[in-house]
Simulated assay, not measured.
Amino acid sequence: MTISPPAGTAEPARAASSLTISEQGAFWVGVGRKPTEAGTAAEAAMYVQYQIPADLRYPLPVVMVHGGGGQGTDYLSTPDGRPGWATRFLQAGYAVYVVDRPGHGRSPYHPDVLGPLEGAAPTYEFIRWLFCDGAGRPGSQWPGSGQIGDDSALDQLMASQGPALPTFTENEEQMRRCGAELLDRIGPAVLITHSMGGPFGWLVADARPGLVKAIIAVEPIGPPFTELPGFGRLDWGLTAAPITYEPPVRDPQELRTRLRAAGADGVQDCLVQDEPVRSLPNLKGFPIAVVVADTSPFAPSGHGVADYLAQAGADAELLRLPEMGITGNGHLPMGEKNSDEVAEALMAWLGKQPAAVEEDAR
Rank of each mutant, 00 (worst) to 15 (best):
G105W: 02
A316N: 05
A343I: 04
P138Y: 06
L318K: 05
A348R: 14
A345K: 11
G134K: 05
A207D: 07
M347P: 00
I127L: 15
A306T: 03
T36F: 06
L165S: 10
A306K: 02
A92I: 02
R106G: 08
D150M: 12
R256I: 08
T169K: 13
A95K: 03
L117V: 08
G302M: 07
L154Y: 06
T193Y: 07
Q156N: 14
G179V: 01
G201V: 02
E37I: 09
P220I: 01
D360Y: 11
L346H: 00
Y245H: 11
I221R: 04
G187K: 06
D133P: 02
T9C: 08
L318T: 01
H66E: 03
M334Y: 09
T9M: 14
I243Q: 00
G302F: 12
H194M: 14
A355R: 12
A314T: 00
C178Q: 06
I221G: 03
E317W: 03
V342H: 02
P220N: 04
T78A: 09
T20Y: 04
A42P: 01
L183F: 05
G197A: 08
H303S: 03
S152C: 10
Y75W: 14
N171A: 13
K337E: 14
A135N: 09
T226Q: 15
A348I: 07
C132Q: 06
E344N: 13
R82K: 14
G30K: 02
L191S: 00
A153H: 10
P223S: 15
E358D: 14
G8N: 04
I243F: 01
E254N: 02
D235L: 11
A312C: 15
R320T: 03
N282K: 10
T87P: 00
D155P: 03
R250S: 15
S22C: 12
V357M: 12
V96W: 08
S77K: 06
V218Y: 07
I127S: 13
A45L: 10
Q174T: 00
A293M: 12
P224V: 03
M46I: 05
G232Q: 06
V277L: 04
R362I: 08
A241F: 10
A15G: 15
A120C: 05
P6C: 04
G68K: 06
R260H: 04
T78P: 01
V48N: 05
V249C: 01
G351Y: 10
L255G: 03
A120P: 11
D274S: 13
L60F: 09
M196Y: 07
G210A: 11
E254R: 00
H110E: 15
P276I: 11
G68T: 10
F131I: 15
T87D: 15
A41F: 12
R233G: 07
E254C: 10
Y124Q: 11
V98C: 01
